[in-house]
Design a protein around this nucleic acid. Structure first.
Lengths: 173, 173
DNA sequence: GGTGCCATGTAATAAGTTACATGATTCG
DNA sequence: CGAATCATGTAACTTATTACATGGCACC
Protein backbone atom coordinates (compact mmCIF):
# COMPACT_ATOMS: atom_id res chain seq x y z
CA UNK A 1 0.00 0.00 0.00
CA UNK A 2 2.95 2.34 0.46
CA UNK A 3 3.77 2.59 -3.22
CA UNK A 4 0.71 4.71 -3.67
CA UNK A 5 2.00 7.21 -1.12
CA UNK A 6 5.46 7.21 -2.57
CA UNK A 7 3.94 8.32 -5.86
CA UNK A 8 1.74 10.93 -4.19
CA UNK A 9 4.72 12.17 -2.23
CA UNK A 10 6.84 12.68 -5.32
CA UNK A 11 4.04 14.38 -7.21
CA UNK A 12 3.40 16.63 -4.23
CA UNK A 13 6.83 18.15 -4.82
CA UNK A 14 6.35 18.71 -8.53
CA UNK A 15 4.35 17.27 -11.41
CA UNK A 16 5.93 14.69 -13.68
CA UNK A 17 5.41 11.78 -16.01
CA UNK A 18 5.61 8.10 -15.14
CA UNK A 19 9.01 8.12 -16.68
CA UNK A 20 10.12 11.00 -14.47
CA UNK A 21 8.85 9.21 -11.41
CA UNK A 22 10.71 6.11 -12.43
CA UNK A 23 13.94 8.06 -12.40
CA UNK A 24 13.17 9.41 -8.94
CA UNK A 25 12.59 5.91 -7.72
CA UNK A 26 15.85 4.76 -9.16
CA UNK A 27 18.03 7.46 -7.76
CA UNK A 28 16.56 8.19 -4.39
CA UNK A 29 13.59 6.15 -3.28
CA UNK A 30 15.10 2.86 -4.41
CA UNK A 31 16.83 2.60 -1.08
CA UNK A 32 13.68 2.70 0.96
CA UNK A 33 10.95 1.64 -1.45
CA UNK A 34 11.98 0.12 -4.78
CA UNK A 35 9.39 -0.02 -7.55
CA UNK A 36 9.42 -1.30 -11.08
CA UNK A 37 8.26 0.53 -14.18
CA UNK A 38 5.37 -1.84 -14.50
CA UNK A 39 4.16 -1.18 -11.00
CA UNK A 40 4.46 2.56 -11.41
CA UNK A 41 2.34 2.86 -14.51
CA UNK A 42 -0.26 0.65 -12.94
CA UNK A 43 -0.38 2.72 -9.80
CA UNK A 44 -0.67 5.97 -11.75
CA UNK A 45 -3.70 4.55 -13.49
CA UNK A 46 -5.29 3.54 -10.21
CA UNK A 47 -4.51 6.89 -8.60
CA UNK A 48 -6.11 8.67 -11.53
CA UNK A 49 -9.24 6.55 -11.24
CA UNK A 50 -9.37 7.34 -7.54
CA UNK A 51 -9.08 11.07 -8.26
CA UNK A 52 -5.89 11.48 -6.24
CA UNK A 53 -3.84 12.57 -9.25
CA UNK A 54 -4.78 14.00 -12.66
CA UNK A 55 -3.22 14.22 -16.08
CA UNK A 56 -2.39 17.89 -16.54
CA UNK A 57 -0.78 17.69 -19.97
CA UNK A 58 -0.03 15.30 -22.78
CA UNK A 59 3.25 15.88 -24.55
CA UNK A 60 5.36 14.32 -27.24
CA UNK A 61 5.76 10.55 -27.49
CA UNK A 62 2.56 9.94 -25.59
CA UNK A 63 3.99 11.55 -22.48
CA UNK A 64 1.43 12.27 -19.78
CA UNK A 65 2.18 14.73 -17.05
CA UNK A 66 0.59 13.94 -13.74
CA UNK A 67 -0.11 16.24 -10.83
CA UNK A 68 -1.48 15.58 -7.38
CA UNK A 69 -5.02 16.77 -6.62
CA UNK A 70 -6.36 18.30 -3.42
CA UNK A 71 -7.79 14.95 -2.44
CA UNK A 72 -4.40 13.40 -3.12
CA UNK A 73 -2.66 15.87 -0.85
CA UNK A 74 -5.15 15.20 1.92
CA UNK A 75 -4.63 11.48 1.51
CA UNK A 76 -0.86 11.90 1.67
CA UNK A 77 -1.02 13.92 4.86
CA UNK A 78 -3.37 11.44 6.39
CA UNK A 79 -0.89 8.68 5.71
CA UNK A 80 2.00 10.69 7.11
CA UNK A 81 0.23 11.67 10.30
CA UNK A 82 -2.28 8.98 11.16
CA UNK A 83 -1.02 5.72 9.74
CA UNK A 84 1.42 3.90 11.96
CA UNK A 85 4.55 2.81 10.05
CA UNK A 86 4.69 -0.93 10.15
CA UNK A 87 8.45 -1.11 10.39
CA UNK A 88 8.85 -3.60 7.59
CA UNK A 89 11.24 -6.15 8.76
CA UNK A 90 11.98 -8.84 6.21
CA UNK A 91 15.71 -9.24 6.25
CA UNK A 92 17.35 -12.18 4.57
CA UNK A 93 20.77 -11.26 5.88
CA UNK A 94 19.55 -11.76 9.44
CA UNK A 95 17.48 -14.77 8.52
CA UNK A 96 20.67 -16.50 7.46
CA UNK A 97 22.23 -15.79 10.81
CA UNK A 98 19.60 -17.92 12.53
CA UNK A 99 20.74 -20.91 10.53
CA UNK A 100 24.47 -20.42 10.57
CA UNK A 101 24.59 -23.57 12.69
CA UNK A 102 24.13 -25.53 9.47
CA UNK A 103 27.61 -24.43 8.44
CA UNK A 104 31.04 -24.98 9.94
CA UNK A 105 32.13 -22.25 12.40
CA UNK A 106 34.69 -21.18 9.84
CA UNK A 107 32.09 -20.75 7.13
CA UNK A 108 29.75 -18.95 9.52
CA UNK A 109 32.51 -16.58 10.43
CA UNK A 110 33.35 -15.97 6.81
CA UNK A 111 29.74 -15.02 6.20
CA UNK A 112 29.79 -12.42 8.95
CA UNK A 113 33.20 -11.16 7.97
CA UNK A 114 32.01 -10.61 4.44
CA UNK A 115 28.95 -8.71 5.66
CA UNK A 116 31.21 -6.52 7.68
CA UNK A 117 33.32 -5.69 4.65
CA UNK A 118 30.37 -4.95 2.44
CA UNK A 119 28.89 -2.68 5.06
CA UNK A 120 32.17 -0.86 5.47
CA UNK A 121 32.19 -0.22 1.75
CA UNK A 122 28.63 1.05 1.66
CA UNK A 123 29.31 3.17 4.68
CA UNK A 124 32.12 4.95 2.96
CA UNK A 125 30.09 5.44 -0.21
CA UNK A 126 27.32 7.06 1.78
CA UNK A 127 29.72 9.20 3.76
CA UNK A 128 31.19 10.44 0.51
CA UNK A 129 27.77 11.31 -0.81
CA UNK A 130 27.07 13.14 2.40
CA UNK A 131 30.20 15.21 2.07
CA UNK A 132 29.64 15.99 -1.57
CA UNK A 133 25.88 16.39 -1.60
CA UNK A 134 25.08 17.05 -5.25
CA UNK A 135 21.54 18.33 -4.76
CA UNK A 136 20.34 21.68 -3.57
CA UNK A 137 18.50 22.26 -0.35
CA UNK A 138 15.54 24.08 -1.80
CA UNK A 139 13.47 21.07 -2.58
CA UNK A 140 11.91 19.30 0.35
CA UNK A 141 12.75 15.84 -0.91
CA UNK A 142 16.39 16.84 -1.09
CA UNK A 143 16.34 18.36 2.37
CA UNK A 144 14.63 15.36 3.91
CA UNK A 145 16.66 13.05 1.75
CA UNK A 146 19.65 14.21 3.76
CA UNK A 147 18.01 12.97 6.93
CA UNK A 148 17.50 9.61 5.26
CA UNK A 149 21.11 9.60 4.13
CA UNK A 150 22.26 10.18 7.68
CA UNK A 151 20.17 7.18 8.67
CA UNK A 152 22.00 5.16 6.04
CA UNK A 153 25.36 6.29 7.32
CA UNK A 154 24.47 5.31 10.86
CA UNK A 155 22.86 2.07 9.78
CA UNK A 156 25.80 0.86 7.73
CA UNK A 157 28.18 1.71 10.54
CA UNK A 158 26.03 -0.12 13.07
CA UNK A 159 25.74 -3.14 10.84
CA UNK A 160 29.46 -3.21 10.10
CA UNK A 161 30.30 -3.07 13.79
CA UNK A 162 27.75 -5.72 14.61
CA UNK A 163 29.00 -8.13 11.95
CA UNK A 164 32.53 -7.67 13.18
CA UNK A 165 31.46 -8.30 16.75
CA UNK A 166 29.44 -11.37 15.75
CA UNK A 167 32.33 -12.83 13.77
CA UNK A 168 34.57 -12.54 16.83
CA UNK A 169 31.86 -14.01 19.00
CA UNK A 170 31.83 -17.17 16.90
CA UNK A 171 35.58 -17.30 16.92
CA UNK A 172 35.54 -17.39 20.70
CA UNK A 173 32.78 -20.02 20.96
CA UNK B 1 12.19 -17.15 -2.18
CA UNK B 2 13.58 -16.90 1.33
CA UNK B 3 10.58 -18.46 3.01
CA UNK B 4 11.64 -21.78 1.61
CA UNK B 5 15.01 -21.49 3.33
CA UNK B 6 13.49 -20.35 6.57
CA UNK B 7 11.51 -23.58 6.61
CA UNK B 8 14.51 -25.69 5.67
CA UNK B 9 16.56 -23.94 8.33
CA UNK B 10 14.07 -24.67 11.07
CA UNK B 11 13.68 -28.29 10.02
CA UNK B 12 17.44 -28.67 9.90
CA UNK B 13 17.48 -28.12 13.67
CA UNK B 14 14.73 -30.61 14.41
CA UNK B 15 11.74 -32.17 12.70
CA UNK B 16 8.30 -30.73 13.26
CA UNK B 17 4.82 -30.19 11.94
CA UNK B 18 3.52 -27.17 10.08
CA UNK B 19 1.95 -26.12 13.31
CA UNK B 20 5.26 -26.33 15.14
CA UNK B 21 6.95 -24.28 12.47
CA UNK B 22 4.24 -21.70 12.74
CA UNK B 23 5.06 -21.23 16.39
CA UNK B 24 8.73 -20.84 15.61
CA UNK B 25 7.88 -18.19 13.10
CA UNK B 26 5.76 -16.37 15.59
CA UNK B 27 8.21 -16.31 18.43
CA UNK B 28 11.56 -15.90 16.77
CA UNK B 29 11.62 -15.58 13.00
CA UNK B 30 8.75 -13.11 12.90
CA UNK B 31 11.24 -10.32 13.45
CA UNK B 32 13.26 -11.08 10.39
CA UNK B 33 10.91 -13.04 8.15
CA UNK B 34 7.21 -13.15 9.04
CA UNK B 35 5.07 -15.83 7.46
CA UNK B 36 1.43 -16.72 7.65
CA UNK B 37 -0.06 -20.14 8.31
CA UNK B 38 -1.36 -20.24 4.79
CA UNK B 39 2.02 -19.59 3.29
CA UNK B 40 3.69 -22.16 5.49
CA UNK B 41 1.47 -25.07 4.60
CA UNK B 42 1.79 -24.20 0.96
CA UNK B 43 5.55 -24.10 1.15
CA UNK B 44 5.73 -27.42 2.97
CA UNK B 45 3.77 -28.97 0.14
CA UNK B 46 6.08 -27.52 -2.45
CA UNK B 47 9.19 -28.56 -0.52
CA UNK B 48 7.85 -32.09 -0.28
CA UNK B 49 7.22 -32.22 -4.02
CA UNK B 50 10.74 -30.97 -4.61
CA UNK B 51 12.16 -33.69 -2.35
CA UNK B 52 13.78 -31.22 0.06
CA UNK B 53 11.68 -32.36 3.00
CA UNK B 54 9.70 -35.54 3.74
CA UNK B 55 6.86 -36.56 5.97
CA UNK B 56 8.41 -38.82 8.58
CA UNK B 57 5.31 -39.54 10.65
CA UNK B 58 1.61 -38.93 10.75
CA UNK B 59 0.15 -38.41 14.20
CA UNK B 60 -3.12 -37.53 15.82
CA UNK B 61 -5.42 -34.91 14.32
CA UNK B 62 -3.89 -35.31 10.90
CA UNK B 63 -0.55 -34.05 12.15
CA UNK B 64 2.31 -34.58 9.75
CA UNK B 65 5.84 -34.46 10.96
CA UNK B 66 8.32 -33.13 8.46
CA UNK B 67 12.04 -33.61 8.32
CA UNK B 68 14.68 -32.17 6.04
CA UNK B 69 16.27 -34.51 3.49
CA UNK B 70 19.88 -34.69 2.38
CA UNK B 71 19.00 -32.70 -0.72
CA UNK B 72 17.29 -30.15 1.52
CA UNK B 73 20.37 -29.77 3.65
CA UNK B 74 22.53 -29.26 0.58
CA UNK B 75 20.12 -26.67 -0.72
CA UNK B 76 20.14 -24.82 2.61
CA UNK B 77 23.91 -24.70 2.71
CA UNK B 78 24.05 -23.51 -0.84
CA UNK B 79 21.76 -20.66 0.03
CA UNK B 80 23.76 -19.74 3.11
CA UNK B 81 27.12 -19.77 1.38
CA UNK B 82 26.59 -18.87 -2.26
CA UNK B 83 23.50 -16.70 -2.50
CA UNK B 84 24.15 -13.05 -1.88
CA UNK B 85 21.69 -11.57 0.65
CA UNK B 86 19.73 -8.90 -1.11
CA UNK B 87 19.48 -6.65 1.90
CA UNK B 88 15.78 -6.15 1.61
CA UNK B 89 15.14 -2.54 2.12
CA UNK B 90 11.49 -1.57 1.99
CA UNK B 91 11.01 0.75 4.89
CA UNK B 92 7.87 2.81 5.20
CA UNK B 93 9.16 4.70 8.20
CA UNK B 94 11.97 6.12 6.10
CA UNK B 95 9.75 6.58 3.08
CA UNK B 96 7.65 8.96 5.12
CA UNK B 97 10.71 10.99 5.99
CA UNK B 98 11.21 11.85 2.33
CA UNK B 99 7.82 13.51 2.26
CA UNK B 100 7.80 15.23 5.60
CA UNK B 101 7.86 18.47 3.62
CA UNK B 102 4.15 17.96 3.02
CA UNK B 103 3.58 18.60 6.73
CA UNK B 104 4.25 21.58 8.96
CA UNK B 105 7.66 21.54 10.66
CA UNK B 106 5.88 20.94 13.93
CA UNK B 107 4.09 17.88 12.61
CA UNK B 108 7.25 16.59 11.00
CA UNK B 109 9.07 16.94 14.27
CA UNK B 110 6.30 15.19 16.13
CA UNK B 111 6.60 12.28 13.74
CA UNK B 112 10.30 11.91 14.42
CA UNK B 113 9.88 12.42 18.12
CA UNK B 114 7.34 9.65 18.24
CA UNK B 115 9.65 7.29 16.34
CA UNK B 116 12.33 8.06 18.86
CA UNK B 117 10.07 7.14 21.75
CA UNK B 118 8.87 3.93 20.17
CA UNK B 119 12.43 2.88 19.45
CA UNK B 120 13.48 3.64 23.00
CA UNK B 121 10.73 1.37 24.21
CA UNK B 122 11.64 -1.46 21.89
CA UNK B 123 15.23 -1.04 22.79
CA UNK B 124 14.54 -1.57 26.45
CA UNK B 125 12.34 -4.59 25.72
CA UNK B 126 15.12 -6.19 23.75
CA UNK B 127 17.74 -5.36 26.35
CA UNK B 128 15.56 -7.03 28.96
CA UNK B 129 15.24 -10.11 26.83
CA UNK B 130 18.97 -10.14 26.41
CA UNK B 131 19.55 -10.00 30.13
CA UNK B 132 16.99 -12.66 30.89
CA UNK B 133 17.51 -14.97 27.96
CA UNK B 134 14.90 -17.67 28.48
CA UNK B 135 16.31 -20.20 26.03
CA UNK B 136 19.21 -22.56 26.42
CA UNK B 137 22.38 -22.35 24.42
CA UNK B 138 22.44 -25.90 23.19
CA UNK B 139 20.34 -25.36 20.12
CA UNK B 140 21.96 -23.54 17.28
CA UNK B 141 18.95 -21.38 16.54
CA UNK B 142 19.01 -20.18 20.13
CA UNK B 143 22.73 -19.50 20.04
CA UNK B 144 22.54 -17.63 16.75
CA UNK B 145 19.30 -16.06 17.83
CA UNK B 146 21.34 -14.22 20.42
CA UNK B 147 23.45 -12.68 17.69
CA UNK B 148 20.27 -11.52 15.99
CA UNK B 149 19.01 -10.11 19.26
CA UNK B 150 22.19 -8.13 19.67
CA UNK B 151 21.57 -6.74 16.21
CA UNK B 152 18.11 -5.67 17.35
CA UNK B 153 19.51 -3.98 20.43
CA UNK B 154 22.00 -2.05 18.35
CA UNK B 155 19.47 -1.27 15.64
CA UNK B 156 16.86 0.14 17.99
CA UNK B 157 19.45 2.25 19.74
CA UNK B 158 20.76 3.58 16.44
CA UNK B 159 17.30 4.36 15.22
CA UNK B 160 16.31 6.06 18.45
CA UNK B 161 19.39 8.26 18.36
CA UNK B 162 18.87 9.07 14.72
CA UNK B 163 15.22 10.07 15.19
CA UNK B 164 16.19 12.28 18.08
CA UNK B 165 18.92 13.90 16.01
CA UNK B 166 16.60 14.39 13.05
CA UNK B 167 13.90 15.97 15.20
CA UNK B 168 16.43 18.49 16.50
CA UNK B 169 17.66 19.08 12.98
CA UNK B 170 14.20 20.17 11.89
CA UNK B 171 13.82 22.29 14.97
CA UNK B 172 16.92 24.24 13.98
CA UNK B 173 15.88 24.65 10.31
C1' DG C 1 20.25 6.46 -40.97
C1' DG C 2 21.31 4.55 -36.65
C1' DT C 3 21.96 4.74 -31.68
C1' DG C 4 20.25 6.05 -27.47
C1' DC C 5 16.91 7.76 -24.71
C1' DC C 6 12.02 8.96 -23.92
C1' DA C 7 7.70 6.93 -23.02
C1' DT C 8 3.88 3.86 -22.13
C1' DG C 9 1.52 -0.31 -21.70
C1' DT C 10 0.33 -5.43 -20.83
C1' DA C 11 0.84 -10.43 -19.70
C1' DA C 12 2.55 -14.01 -16.94
C1' DT C 13 4.31 -15.35 -12.74
C1' DA C 14 5.61 -15.31 -7.89
C1' DA C 15 4.95 -14.05 -3.20
C1' DG C 16 2.29 -12.51 0.53
C1' DT C 17 -2.22 -11.56 3.16
C1' DT C 18 -6.88 -12.34 4.83
C1' DA C 19 -10.60 -15.02 5.42
C1' DC C 20 -13.07 -19.11 5.41
C1' DA C 21 -13.72 -23.98 6.54
C1' DT C 22 -13.23 -28.08 9.10
C1' DG C 23 -12.36 -31.20 12.60
C1' DA C 24 -9.67 -33.81 16.53
C1' DT C 25 -7.91 -33.95 21.17
C1' DT C 26 -6.82 -32.60 25.72
C1' DC C 27 -7.72 -30.88 30.14
C1' DG C 28 -10.27 -29.07 33.66
C1' DC D 1 -19.24 -31.19 28.34
C1' DG D 2 -17.17 -26.96 27.05
C1' DA D 3 -13.12 -24.19 26.10
C1' DA D 4 -8.66 -23.97 24.48
C1' DT D 5 -5.45 -25.61 21.61
C1' DC D 6 -3.81 -28.62 17.98
C1' DA D 7 -3.86 -29.21 13.16
C1' DT D 8 -4.45 -28.76 8.22
C1' DG D 9 -6.16 -27.04 4.03
C1' DT D 10 -8.10 -23.80 0.28
C1' DA D 11 -10.00 -19.57 -2.06
C1' DA D 12 -9.83 -14.83 -3.13
C1' DC D 13 -7.25 -10.98 -3.34
C1' DT D 14 -3.27 -7.77 -3.36
C1' DT D 15 1.39 -6.66 -4.30
C1' DA D 16 5.67 -7.20 -6.67
C1' DT D 17 8.81 -9.01 -10.38
C1' DT D 18 10.16 -10.22 -15.06
C1' DA D 19 9.57 -10.12 -19.63
C1' DC D 20 7.60 -8.75 -23.78
C1' DA D 21 5.94 -5.28 -27.06
C1' DT D 22 5.74 -0.97 -29.32
C1' DG D 23 6.97 3.32 -31.09
C1' DG D 24 8.51 8.51 -31.16
C1' DC D 25 12.00 11.88 -31.02
C1' DA D 26 16.66 13.98 -30.91
C1' DC D 27 21.18 14.29 -32.12
C1' DC D 28 25.32 13.11 -34.40
Amino acid sequence: MSLRYAVLGLLSEHPGSGYDLLKSFRNSLANVWPATQSQLYGELGRLTDAGLVTVTAEGARGRKEYDITGAGRTELQHWLVDVEPDGFRRNDLLLRVFFLGALTPKEAQAYLQERSEIMAERHSELSDLQQHWPYGDEENVAYFGKLVLEWGVRFTRMQQEWAQWAAKEIDAG
